[in-house]
Design a protein around this nucleic acid. Structure first.
Lengths: 386, 386
DNA sequence: CGAATATTGCTGGGGTCTTTACGAATTGTA
DNA sequence: TACAATTCGTAAAGACCCCAGCAATATTCG
């Protein structure tokens, strides 16, 4: 029964989707271009794209200045604003929401600061506020959202819970997916923050060329996210990448080398300690340099375990400490050279603290795509015209 | 240009392949059954299967005793003997070749013993002999082979070389793929033995139900093969799973606990030492039990690194020592419980020393399938009738 | 031997894509 | 301004595929 029995309707769907693919991510295209891009004949491409326009998936862009000989062609464009998705980073210090259209263009983002020891209820309330603001400031309603993804700390199981552990107090009892499902109709997904950051690096970050990626979160917390063969790997129970739980790897204590660096002035707040150490090391401070060396050495053991297990193309170093990539990357590479069989390329993230939210957006878009590309074209939820 | 432009021909191909899928792995089927299985109409299924018969991909099986009312239906069967594939395990102690038809049924296998310190040339010669015998004893020629896969020790790069390292002396300079390419036209692939064993466990072993598998080779060598999301993961440079190279993991020295167990009689050959220790431990020998405990403790650290990285569904323990799974599995699980966040199921392999060759067969079959299911149906290389 | 049953084979209908062809719109040149 | 050249838009014809339904066929059971 699960057979791939394929009839004519399916063929038409396939070709319609083929046209959608050809439209997306390209500048407004003529029918001739679409025909060339899809391999379909020009009349077919014409019929398809006209149907898409009728259903609200595409629009006609007026010819514009055309300096070429011949009748000017109509240009069609995918209606990226037919729907929107939301990506949310629920972090220890901040909550960040990003709203993007179907092309993945970020339309708006909102953030609010929270304290790491906030209780779950107030954290969820802050999340609600951030979302509400993001929608209010752009004039959208919850019905305009086609998918929502939330990034949280700790391994996430199928249901969206972080049962194994999480640094956020009380968070294990919370299910953000259920919480949001009561407010929004869109499909909601909860995912681990490191995993989302990894996705973001492949989407808009420094690993766009790689299919096998290890993302290292280097910050007050240490963690990892894995992309294998181009897709995010969650593991059977959603706990892939949690190599830090292995004591031999020393990730848990690694940041302490920086936090407790001898010579650290009392005036420096704990959150700024690492930055101070990196800066001091850059200035040649002996103790700071030793602290960085010890930190990197511990970080490298876990990284080596990941690298040896997966043999990735690229290792991306992200997280708060990646701002000091200039003094981390080189010793990290040296350590990996010592520990690994084949050393991957090591690159520093450039997504600052937006990686998790961006990755959440990408996953939400994937959700939309999956529906779009498998279960035929859904009824056009979009208004008939912009 | 890479567009999915889909015309009628493609539709027909798709449906033809759909029929092939419905035929394979099923007993001889009537057109009505095929129609039900594929979702196609009966006339369509009829036309398709007739075309397959004409091209040599299927045969008609005569009605046989039919005890049901009505006109007896013709039964069609996939011609598994239209082609064959070869899987070869080039190990330290033996070389094993297996010949299978397109259904994966093993038709014949040949093996020969070699010494671990044999030089590359004689090892390749032994491989040639094993293949030649396997073909001669079944009456096939090299032209009947549609794909060949060779399993070797050590990480294999894209070209089929084991450049990073291998325990076989001189083997880094050898390229078995090139060697065989001079003799056979079929596509040839070389792969790491642990990876192939992992594939075999999912195909015919104890992990058929799992999509995320860590295969542990527990023997005189220690190694791993990874299956993630149902497919073998090689890593960017083919060195995935080589966690044993990390010193912290202690895999290199782990078997020594068994080999050098105090109380080991001088009369026991090195190759039989582990078996003796396991047996002694089973009989309650204190020293032997301690040696096993130490071995498992070391094995578990690397296994934990793999498990924490990938969060697999199942860990399969294979290799020579898996014959003593009865006294390894329980302490291994206990150790993993201690070291991991979520402990996967742990199972002992039952494929004895045929896992690598079986996995090689599966990969060769995958190669055939890939051609069959992407680039349309190739011209029937098969003779028109059995 | 005839009725019941299930399969086989065939024909027409509906649908899709492609090819071919021709009219329409614009540019550049005489 | 008129005309050729070029490209786009669209319509008609042809080929192909899938499906529904009906007549013919082969077998079992009474």
């Amino acid at each position: 029964m699960a057979g791939t029995g394929t009839d004519l309707n399916r063929l038409r769907e396939l070709n319609s989707l083929s046209i959608v693919r050809a439209l997306r991510g390209n500048p407004p295209s003529t029918v001739t271009e679409l025909s060339a891009r899809t391999g379909l004949s020009r009349p077919s491409a014409d019929v398809m794209v006209k149907a898409l326009v009728a259903d609200g998936w595409a629009t006609v862009v007026e010819p514009a200045a055309n300096s070429v000989v011949g009748r000017p062609a109509r240009r069609y464009q995918f209606r990226a604003d037919a729907g929107h998705v939301l990506g949310i980073d629920v972090g220890g210090h901040k909550i960040l929401a990003m709203l993007a259209d179907l092309d993945g263009t970020v339309v708006h983002s909102t953030r609010v600061a929270v304290t790491p020891d906030a209780d779950p209820a107030s954290r969820l309330a802050a999340m609600d506020t951030v979302i509400a603001n993001c929608l209010a400031e752009t004039g959208f309603s919850g019905d305009d959202l086609w998918a929502i993804t939330v990034g949280v700390t700790g391994p996430v199981d199928e249901t969206g819970r972080t049962t194994l552990f999480t640094p956020l107090p009380g968070w294990t009892s919370v299910n953000p997916a259920e919480h949001l499902a009561a407010r929004f109709d869109a499909p909601i997904r909860v995912e681990n923050d490191c995993k989302l950051a990894a996705v973001a690096e492949r989407w808009h970050g420094v690993a766009q060329d790689a299919d096998d990626i290890v993302y290292l979160l280097a910050g007050i917390r240490t963690g990892a996210g894995l992309i294998i063969d181009g897709t995010l790997r969650r593991g059977y129970g959603g706990a892939a990448g949690e190599i830090g739980a292995l004591r031999q790897v020393r990730w848990l204590g690694a940041p302490a080398h920086l936090q407790n660096c001898p010579g650290l002035p009392e005036s420096v707040a704990p959150d700024d300690a690492a930055a101070w150490v990196f800066s001091a090391a850059r200035d040649g401070d002996k103790a700071a340099k030793a602290a960085v060396r010890r930190y990197v050495r511990d970080l490298a053991v876990g990284a080596a375990a990941l690298v040896l297990t997966l043999d990735p193309h690229v290792v991306v170093v992200g997280g708060g400490y990646s701002r000091s990539a200039d003094i981390i990357l080189e010793p990290l590479e040296r350590e990996l050279q010592r520990l690994c069989l084949r050393v991957p390329e090591i690159r520093a993230s450039t997504l600052a603290d937006e990686g998790v939210a961006l990755g959440a957006l990408r996953l939400a878009l994937d959700e939309v795509d999956a529906r779009l590309f498998t279960t035929s074209l859904p009824a056009p939820l979009a208004p008939p015209a912009g």
